[in-house]
Amino acid sequence: MDQPGFDYHIDIPGTTLFDGKQAMKGYALNKMCYAFNKEENRNAFKADEEAFMEQYGLNNTQKQAVRDRNVLAMIEAGGNIYYLAKLAGIFKLSVQDVGGQQTGMTTEEFQQHLLDQA
Rank of each mutant, 00 (worst) to 15 (best):
E40D: 15
A28C: 07
G26V: 03
N41V: 04
A85D: 01
D116H: 11
M53P: 08
Q62V: 03
L84E: 00
K92P: 05
A47K: 04
Q55A: 14
D11P: 06
D68P: 02
F18I: 12
V98G: 10
T61A: 09
Q62G: 03
A88D: 01
G57Y: 12
V71T: 06
A35N: 00
Y83L: 03
T107V: 11
Q3E: 14
P13A: 04
D97Q: 07
T16S: 15
F52N: 02
D11C: 10
H113Q: 13
I10K: 12
L87R: 00
K38T: 06
K92A: 12
A73T: 02
A51R: 04
I90K: 06
F52R: 00
V95S: 15
D19Y: 11
D97M: 09
D48N: 05
I12Q: 03
D11R: 15
E108A: 08
N70P: 10
R42I: 00
Y27C: 01
T106H: 09
R69L: 08
A28F: 01
E49Q: 13
A65M: 01
Y8R: 14
N60E: 15
M24I: 04
T107Y: 10
G99Y: 07
A77K: 01
F110T: 06
Y83C: 02
F18W: 12
N43S: 13
T16F: 10
E54F: 14
F36V: 00
G79S: 03
G78K: 01
E50K: 10
N37A: 11
M74R: 05
Y27H: 05
A88P: 03
